[in-house]
């Protein structure tokens, strides 16, 4: 990177930086644009060839395979699942006990203990 000496006219240098800076910003983002417009699809295509199209898109799945699978069957299955999940309850113990935490008495810190027991 060549550094422009600082005793040149700052305005002139300002214009140089203005032009080059804008050019670089634009070229940088154009590069990104071009990559994501063309480069990325190609990369993804290559990836797809390598993995032999293991992951299918929705539109690739033929509707003919599932012709027997009608909406009624789907509804029946969903109702069954819904009812099954509805039946489930968590068994919980109805007896609630709160154990009193045992606190050791110590003459050194008796004040602090009482302060804590007030708070909790």
């Amino acid at each position: 990177m060549t550094r422009i000496l600082l005793y040149t006219d700052p305005i002139v240098e300002g214009y140089i930086i203005l032009i080059t800076g804008l050019l670089i910003v634009f070229s940088g983002l154009i590069l990104l644009t071009v990559f994501f417009k063309y480069g990325l699809p190609i990369m993804l295509y290559i990836y797809k060839i390598i993995t032999k199209g293991r992951d299918k898109k929705v539109k690739d799945i033929s509707p003919k395979v599932n012709q027997d699978f009608t909406g009624e069957i789907a509804a029946a299955i969903s109702v069954a699942i819904h009812m099954y999940l509805d039946e489930q309850h968590d068994e919980e113990n109805a007896i609630l006990t709160i154990k009193q935490a045992r606190k050791l008495y110590s003459p050194w810190s008796s004040k602090i203990y009482s302060a804590y027991s007030n708070r909790f």
């Binding site: 910003v25 634009f26 940088g28 983002l29 154009i30 990104l32 644009t33 071009v34 994501f36 417009k37």
Partner: peptide, 8 residues
């Protein structure tokens, strides 16, 4: 991606 240019 072309909207990137607006950011520039």
């Amino acid at each position: 991606p072309k909207l990137m240019l607006l950011g520039a």
